[in-house]
């Protein structure tokens, strides 16, 4: 039996609370200066008590995490609509339990696995990661998950398993965004086997110590913090080991703008906008954008995966 972690990393860092308070005071001051009464509270830190049992994992940043509100109301999850608040508005009725994942391809233990079979044998870890969207905004998110590599090893991938392909649930009834062909449904993402096995890569089941909200990709989603957010496929129902590089949804939609690797890279611009800087969600309206870091600041951990690869061509 796992022991419940008493202190979570975001509880140790009171900096975020301090920041939130400071922003509140600033907002209140501005409102008073403008002769108005402010009833609005800034994004609150919630979920001090989570429902998941977890231990502290490695690689956590000590940057202050974003508020529960920002993380759970500002989402790109096109299956529930293309506006940022659509997932929050449209995903509340989504049934994320019971949940089955089909494992197939180049491995010795394919099959249909229940959510409990997938997660049960592992210890959940808290990992506070930076999250950089291809749209040039970023957050810091206290995820709860398991290292993807530990999970994949249980399916005994064979030597032909060079890539891993993931698929999101296709259910237009529950996912209204899938009723329009904005992307080719179901959503498909992929990683090289080395990326999938990297200890930074997470299969996420929660945020802020709580079960993952539907709008964040319940019940299972991928997180690769050195890649743009769209690689983090949500509501996963299929994992396939393949010998060939999978065609991913955004690549199919626009291969000139979105590549298979999608590594965060301030030197390679999106054809329509710069990737050199990012807007940190939750920063003040008058705060500057911050410089984007190579591999989103995880270069030390992942740069060797891409040794000899032309990152301009393999974007």
């Amino acid at each position: 039996m796992k022991t419940k972690n008493k202190i979570h990393p975001w509880e140790i860092t009171s900096e975020s609370v301090y920041l939130d308070r400071r922003q509140f005071l600033l907002a209140a001051g501005l409102a008073t200066a403008a002769g108005m009464t402010s009833l609005a509270l800034p994004g609150q830190l919630m979920a001090a008590t989570g429902d998941l049992e977890s231990v502290q994992g490695p690689y956590s940043t000590d940057e202050p995490p974003n508020s529960w509100k920002d993380i759970t109301t500002y989402n790109n999850f096109y299956e529930f609509g293309t506006a940022k608040d659509d997932p929050y508005d449209n995903a509340q009725e989504f049934r994320s339990q019971p949940w089955t994942v089909k494992v197939s391809g180049e491995c010795d233990k394919p099959g249909e696995y229940h959510f409990e079979d997938i997660i049960g044998p592992h210890t959940l870890e808290d990992r506070v990661y930076r999250h950089r969207c291809v749209e040039a905004w970023s957050m810091v998110v206290p995820w709860v998950g398991i290292p993807l590599g530990d999970l994949l090893k249980r399916f005994d991938p064979n030597s032909d398993a060079k890539f891993v392909r993931f698929k999101t649930l296709h259910d237009p009834e529950q996912m209204p965004g899938q009723r329009r062909p904005v992307l080719r449904w179901p959503y498909v993402e992929g990683l090289t086997i080395a990326e999938a096995m990297h200890p930074l890569t997470l299969m996420v089941v929660g945020v802020y110590g709580k079960t993952l909200p539907n709008q964040n990709g319940a019940p299972l989603r991928l997180i690769t913090p050195w890649k743009y957010g769209f690689k983090g496929i949500k509501s996963i129902v299929e994992i396939e080991f393949t010998s060939r590089q999978p065609h991913t949804s955004w690549e199919i939609a626009n291969s000139r703008e979105y590549g298979f690797y999608a590594n965060v890279n301030p030197e390679v611009d999106h054809p329509r906008w710069s990737q050199a800087r990012e807007r940190r969600i939750g920063a003040g309206v008058f705060d500057e954008k911050q410089p984007t870091l190579m591999f989103n600041g995880y270069a030390e951990e992942v740069a060797e995966l891409y040794a000899g690869l032309d990152l301009r061509k393999n974007y």
Partner: peptide, 18 residues
């Protein structure tokens, strides 16, 4: 303007500048 100053619970959301 009301949303910028957060009057009466109004807000521009998580990414107000955009």
């Amino acid at each position: 303007t009301l949303e910028v100053f957060g009057v009466a619970g109004m807000s521009l959301g998580a990414n107000p500048i955009e």
